[in-house]
Design a protein around this nucleic acid. Sequence first.
RNA 1: GGGCGGGUAGCUCAGUCGGGAGAGCACUGGCCUUACAAGCCAGGGGUCACAGGUUCGAUCCCUGUUCCGCCUACCA
Length: 892
Amino acid sequence: MAKQTLEKVYDPQACEKRWYEFWEQQGVFRAAMNSGKPSYSIVIPPPNVTGSLHIGHALNNTLQDIMVRHKRMQGYNTLWIFGTDHAGIATQNVVERQLAAQGLNRQQLGREDFIRRVWEWRKESGNIITKQLKLLGASCDWERERFTMDEGLSRAVRQVFARLYQEGLIYRGNYIVNWCPRCATALSDLEVEFEERNGHLYHIRYPLIIAGAESQEYLIVATTRPETMLGDTAVAVNPDDERYNKWIGQKVLLPLCQREIPIIGDSYVDPAFGTGCLKVTPAHDANDFEIGKRYQLPQVVVMNIDATMNKEAGVYQGLTREECRKKVSHDLEQGGYLEKIEDYRHAVGHCYRCKTVIEPTVSQQWFLRMKDLAQPAIDAVREKKVQLIPSHWEATYFDWMLNIRDWCISRQIWWGHRIPAWYCKDCGHINVHLEDVTACQKCAGKNLDAETDVLDTWFSSALWPFSTMGWPDKTKEMEFFYPTSLLVTSFDILFFWVARMIMLGLKFRGQVPFHQVYIHALVRDAEGRKMSKSKGNVVDPLTKMEEYGTDALRFTLTSLTAQGRDICLDEKRIEGYRNFMNKIWNAARFSLLNLEDFSCQDMANNALEFTLADVWILSALQRLIADADSALAEYRFNDYAGALYHFFWHEFCDWYLEMIKLRLNDPQATKIQRYSTQLTLVTVLEQCLCLLHPIVPFISEEIWQQLPRKNGHVASIMITPWPKFEERLINKEAEARIDTIKEVVGAIRNLRAELNLSPAMVLPKVLLSLGNIKVREILRAHEAYLRSLCKVGQFEIGTGLTRPSGSISAVDQYGEIFLPLAGVMDIGQEIQRLQKAVNQTKEELEKVEGKLNNPAFVEKAPAVVVEKEQLRRSELQEKLSKLLSNIDKIRL
RNA sequence: GGGCGGGUAGCUCAGUCGGGAGAGCACUGGCCUUACAAGCCAGGGGUCACAGGUUCGAUCCCUGUUCCGCCUACCA
């Protein structure tokens, strides 16, 4: 790429697309399978095929991209598998809405045509998120893209289903499940969201049957759902409840239905709740279902699949649940059966897809037995074969896994993996098989009905880490990349997805699907509220990427990713990091301007002549590399970003670049000297770009491509070797010297600022009176830095210097600073300024003396700590006396 | 009901071994200093939620209280 002068302001739009295309062209996203190298792999949490990029995706994929880019630079065989999820209910909803717009529904189309329509939709609109992830810079191996409904993954699903069925882990049966009347399908327990709602507790009188006839006596039951009474088949009381236990075995008359139902005794009933009498509706309540099984009560389903009342509801047939509740309540009151209605707040289950109130209903479904699958998965986490990060999620994981319940895996929708079961109409045998069954395996009859239900989408997701790699076939991918190294996900799908992958991975591969799981937080708005369309506080990552640049957004998200914390995203932060991108840009601009006459040469290290600044920055860079490495290794993303931010801006730009201006602008500098500093400059800049690259891929590539470098270099920063920490470059002496210089420069600048001296004004002379000979030596040796960084014409550096008359003074840990400003200074103001310093020093001194005067402290604290305090005391005492003496002499 | 996380500067948050409280943003003052005003220099600002305890010493460890958030659960 030709050299060019950089613009003053970084323009992300101008380069992002260009570099992404360049990377694709170069094939650098493709997984290498080089047998000499270690492997690193991640499978993406597959976004819904209907999805578009939201801020959570942006975070999730930025973190994955950071790890993958980092490992790729470290030389691993790196694979990041991308793919999408067929999202059964969500996708079906989308296509159904499209049909509705044309006045059609899926029943009119028929199953086959409908499925064809979904595939068409997927072809046209199913790759939105793919394009958006590319905009985000994601370095997935796009050639290995998978879809949960594609041929290979479908085969994996069937294989798993068939084996689990054969082993008796999958069974079919009539049980109570969570039914969504809007989606017209069963849901798993996890797909129900409970929310507190204001409701009512209806107290209803159930007349007792005495001597075969309705009596005036009654039991009162309390319920939040009076409409379900139409399906009541018993009333239960606690057998120890002396108010009622005499009635056990008797009957009550069910109001409105004129049905006699038994009174049973069951310890499930809490005598303290409500009236102590519980109406039992086995077909519409999960607990009642259990009670019903214990007493062989009939199950009366009173609703249709859309939650309108069915013929069992008698006169209420055809009403919706809500209408029926009103009517029942009204009729009870009319009949004198309603004791009272109380306000009552309780949790109501809603469909996680469409928010419709769930109707617990008995129906014929398929289930996966979980207990046996859970145990090895619990052990795997306990034994750290799968490491959850942060580890406090383990508690949540164990709690759920230990109380796991069977998983309802069948869905009454059309879009999804059809359950591979065929019912023989001749002998009743259920045929479950990998391939389509055309003749009954038991009676050879050809009279078969295929199962119409499909599987829960999460069933196929559970196989994702190995199904995407070609399992059940033996593939090179499986050999190289399974188990995967890391999974990056959000905690809200820990049970939905992570736990199930561990269980099925262990079951079918005998190995965990991933070694580590990094669980990140939710992105909230600046006030910490969950983002939602209804609140209107959604931050659209794509808009922000356009406004501030993709790198700025990525850096922001990374900086805010501290473990165990939610992320509160304030747009101000994005702006701030956009500014950081610009800072990087301008530092590069400065560097390139000063590297125009530079070309890399082979030169022995000992022939070079480095400045103190050069030696120091190389040393500081080593510390940065070490910090970045350890932060990444421990997934402290915020520390990783923070270390880079601090080093680049506040060490490299603020100090190093300012210091080397001296040499770069010095016409007296020899070629070797100039070359040495230029070499340091380009080295540090390049290594910073490499360290930054995983977070900010675009700007780092844009600048990197323009750096002068040796021949035979690689094509992209993406495949440049990751910087290596070099112990030999650590130079504590240089670091200490720079610290001293920074300290003195700071003190002089502070004085200037407090006196309101214009930065443009060059102070003719400054005196430094320093007690320590080493400090004097350092400052004398590097006086040039002081002169340029403090805008001072001349220094007098010595010890015990007398304060020139009419001088401003300051005292710091090294000694005294005098600015001779005869005639300019305001004595009153100066006394005030010094007095303030005196007060501060006194306060600190009191604290230290408090400690040292405490005999227990001197006796029990470690010697090092005590010595430290003693040293501090003497320093403060000396500072105080100097300050006081300066006030004393102020008028001289 | 059970569990988890949190309460540190005006805001959002760091704080790894218990030993002089930090960052970013915001704010104040001064500067268009030949990379950058999306910038430079300097500065102000905190009873580390509250109460006890352990310790020579607690933001940090222990106990309790309180507030906020989340997860989970078969009290109708």
